[in-house]
Design a protein around this nucleic acid. Structure first.
Lengths: 209, 209
DNA sequence: AAGTTACGCTACGGTCCGTATCGGAAAACG
DNA sequence: CGTTTTCCGATACGGACCGTAGCGTAACTT
């Protein structure tokens, strides 16, 4: 996903692939160092060793640039089979939190989401590039749990089914993000364990832990 | 909470209370109309019928200004006694979601949070003005549920207790925010019911709903 | 070789931020 | 009442940044 490719094969000088990666790297580095609000396109271009105009040929504005740079980070998430649904969930919670706790990621994600609240196109882009892609983790974990008999099989109505998956995704991702970015408290193993218990057995069980 | 008051009682002309409310109102109106990223301090001042310098005497920058304007919105949240813990939670979920779905609120909240990720002072301010204040809702609902026998009494260890309250707060607030702002799906009564079931009885119960 | 496209560079208009400065107005103080 | 202190509106300003335009040059296609 380098940039809005002009066309598979056209005449003339092609876009520099080196410039693509240099810009992405520079964007991520700059996000870590100065954060979104103080990140300037000129600064990124200079750090990438590239003219500002080269950058604007690829992305229309600061927002687009950062979305592309951030989205790729989330594809690293994996869901190893830990043997039980409880362990699987705890593991993905910690992995996700680890990603968010990297200094640049959280700022970028929030900034991009904030930007999207008044930009429908950007919002749709986020949905495709981040949200929709990461639901694979929920589906995968659920499939395993069903094989183990920890969860009932899929409901007859596929829409009903999708609603449940969406709910679980929003609950897990939302709680981790909220704790990390809003409450600004760490996501440690104890929190993950308690949260997972809440999800699987409900509040009373989590209360008497 | 008008502005960083200079001091309880000092000599000289006091700050204009009218200017305070005019600025806050103008800020909220502007947020609804143009969103965070296109909101300018000059515009707000003009709309409030106030000099830009008057505004800068109260708030150091755009971020501070918006935080104060947004924080007040969350104080409207109440927790009516609906007779059961399930009903209480559903009601607060819907109320919170209703707040977030107002056009300006979501953009503002996200923007402010994004800003805070690289500004410790602002982050602390958010913690005090929004996060900490709204935990009263969790405490209140819990107290009622304990009286009804729906939840066990407070744990012996008060820190243990606080961790549970924090968890519940992050889960509820986080899921609602995530669904509204990231997934961009509506929070309707059915979602609230299912989510509440998940919280109270765990995932298997919510799956077979 | 001709044509097309990307590149770096430089320059620019425009917008906004946040500060400084000023005369005047409003309240507290003696 | 006058003095002092502080706030107010107005205006001007330096500085930063955005996003675009124009140019000569480099790279690639046909």
């Amino acid at each position: 996903m380098p940039s809005p490719a002009p066309s598979p094969r056209r005449a003339g000088r092609p876009r520099s692939a080196e410039a693509d990666v240099a810009i992405m790297d520079a964007t991520r580095e700059a996000l870590v160092e100065v954060g979104w609000s103080k990140l300037t396109v000129g600064h990124v271009a200079a750090r990438a060793g590239v003219a500002k105009t080269t950058l604007y040929r690829r992305w229309a504005n600061k927002g687009e640039l950062v979305v592309h740079a951030v989205a790729a980070l989330f594809d690293e998430l994996e869901l190893p089979d830990c043997g039980s649904l409880q362990a699987d969930i705890e593991s993905v919670i910690l992995a996700f939190a680890g990603l968010l706790q990297q200094p640049g990621t959280n700022a970028s994600l929030m900034a991009v989401v904030a930007e999207s609240t008044n930009d429908p196109a950007l919002r749709e882009h986020i949905r495709e590039a981040i949200v929709q892609r990461q639901k694979r983790l929920v589906l995968q974990g659920r499939q395993r749990a069903q094989r183990r008999g920890e969860l009932p099989p899929d409901a007859a109505d596929p829409e009903e089914d999708a609603r449940l998956v969406d709910l679980v995704f929003d609950v897990i991702a939302g709680a981790v993000v909220h704790r990390t970015l809003v409450s600004a408290e760490p996501v440690d193993t104890e929190w993950a364990r308690r949260f997972t218990t809440l999800i699987l057995q409900g509040l009373p069980a989590a209360a008497s832990l």
